[in-house]
Design a protein around this nucleic acid. Structure first.
Lengths: 289, 289
DNA sequence: AACTTCCATAGGCTATGCCTATCCATCGTA
DNA sequence: TACGATGGATAGGCATAGCCTATGGAAGTT
């Protein structure tokens, strides 16, 4: 039983004539005849009485007609749903962010996005990178915003911005006046760093490694604001990305003059996943803003 | 969008794998792949995300799945309806009868039929032959019971019985003692006949014509019982079919010795009309009884 | 009786769905 | 890192099935 057979059947039922139905269906009368015959064959019963003059539904045809119509209606509805679904910018997006980005980059962009696409329900979760990657794989988040690069070809990445790293120094530190400094200059300083698991800790440690620096770590925290408070209190120095700089804190910030002392923030999605219009809108909004 | 594509789509959604779905659908994996691709192409969007390991429905696929299932369900329902409808001996039959048969032949057979096939709703209408033919054509009755033959190849006929004609005579008529008589013997008698339009009038008149008899008609009625009452009252003679003989009436009946003085009762249906099982059961019941 | 109308049949062509073989990417494992 | 296993996509060939035109045959019309 094929869709076109049902179409032809309904056309004949509607017009009361094979010829008319064929015309309406844009096929030749014999072709339509064949398909009706075939349908009747499969059902094992006649659907029409062929009287000399006209054609009339049999009892069975009468019971079959609404069924056939229902199938065609359902089909149209299905197609319509898809088209609509494609046009529609809405639905929900769940975005995951690493903690060292969450407070700085996202809030303003989320509000402008939500204003622009009020149909889209945004959910944000804050997790460290490996958790985000797992959640991308399992589909519990759609997009992750984190530090690039991510190894492997498992994800598609969209870089958003690259920021320099800064040394955070106590207010009265002797290096404060310098426009920039090398990490080597911090050799003697006690360090405050993010806790293990935070990718920016790795970024900072990598930068130190390149400078042959093996810092003594005197404090660890899960968030920059704690580190900066401690730095302001004179416990030591730290390394922070540009976006973490708090103007009104007790710290001073000096740019680190190392071309590799940067971090790149980007959005990634699971490679091969099809993106809804909402997803795409979100990604391009992130890039524009 | 074809039915088999929807089937494959549902199979993939169910099994979460093209290969598994292909196996379940008894086709090769490439064939299934092709059809899914084609479906996606027509819809203009991906229905599945092909991740390395497994396959997952896209947002669009998720909305499409229940639709596709609905179509398939409707289709099954339609098919089921037809099969059921074929098995079922029921529904309704409307049968038309001419007035000169209605009171005699039908009642006993209808009751036995209704007892046997209690699911079938029987309706009877009493009309003269041309009206019955029209109603067969228009489909407002399914079967007509009337005097054969019917001219033309417009109908299919099922002869039921052939009955002799009898002369109905007043109780004290001189011809009463004869075992049979010729119409010529009635040359002198005043005649009572059915009204014009009743086919049996034509049958009787034709018989008279063959006997070179041009009867003087003194009474006309639409039913035999009126004629017979009048005959009993001595108004004249009449011609009646065997089934119209009323044993307890004031008349005497003498067989007419003319091989052509018969009438054949039969059932007819519109040629080319498909008959339901109920129709066929009714026709064969008429013949058996 | 010729003509028209309408559905069915016949024969040929093309498109399409299915097949096997193969490719390519991913994933698990030595 | 390299290799084999798994799973989907691609390529090419074949058979079916739907469509076409031409024709047949029955019924109704002029």
């Amino acid at each position: 039983m094929e869709v076109h057979q049902l179409r032809y059947f309904c056309a004949v039922a509607e017009t009361g004539s094979f010829s008319r139905a064929a015309e309406q269906s844009h096929i030749s009368q014999p072709s339509l005849s064949q398909q009706i015959l075939k349908l009747e064959d499969e059902l094992g019963a006649r659907l029409f009485d062929r009287l000399g003059r006209s054609v009339r539904l049999t009892e069975l045809g009468k019971t079959f007609l609404p069924r056939a119509c229902a199938v065609l209606r359902e089909l149209e509805a299905a197609k319509g749903d898809v088209v609509e679904g494609k046009e529609f910018i809405g639905g929900s997006i769940t975005v995951g962010v690493i903690p060292t980005v969450a407070p700085y980059l996202l809030p303003p962009r989320l509000t402008t996005f939500s204003r622009k696409f009020s149909q889209v329900r945004l959910t944000v979760v804050e997790e460290i990178t490996p958790v985000l990657l797992d959640r991308l794989r399992s589909g519990t988040i759609d997009v992750a915003i984190l530090a690039l690069p991510i190894r492997g070809r498992e994800f598609d990445a969209f870089p958003l911005l690259t920021e320099r790293l800064f040394a955070a120094l106590p207010k009265k530190h002797k290096l404060n006046s310098r426009p920039s400094l090398s990490l080597k200059d911090l050799r003697a300083e006690p360090f405050l760093l993010l806790r293990d698991g935070h990718c920016f800790r790795d970024t900072a440690v990598a930068a130190c490694d390149r400078a042959r620096l093996h810092p003594q770590i005197v404090f660890e925290s899960g968030q920059f604001s704690s580190l900066l408070s401690m730095v302001g209190a004179g416990m030591g120095v730290s390394i922070v990305p540009e976006m973490a700089i708090e103007k009104k804190s007790q710290c001073r910030y000096v740019r680190i003059a190392d071309d590799q002392a940067v971090r790149t923030i980007g959005a990634i999605v699971l490679r091969g996943r099809s993106l809804t219009r909402a997803h795409r809108a979100f990604l391009s909004h992130l890039r524009e803003a």
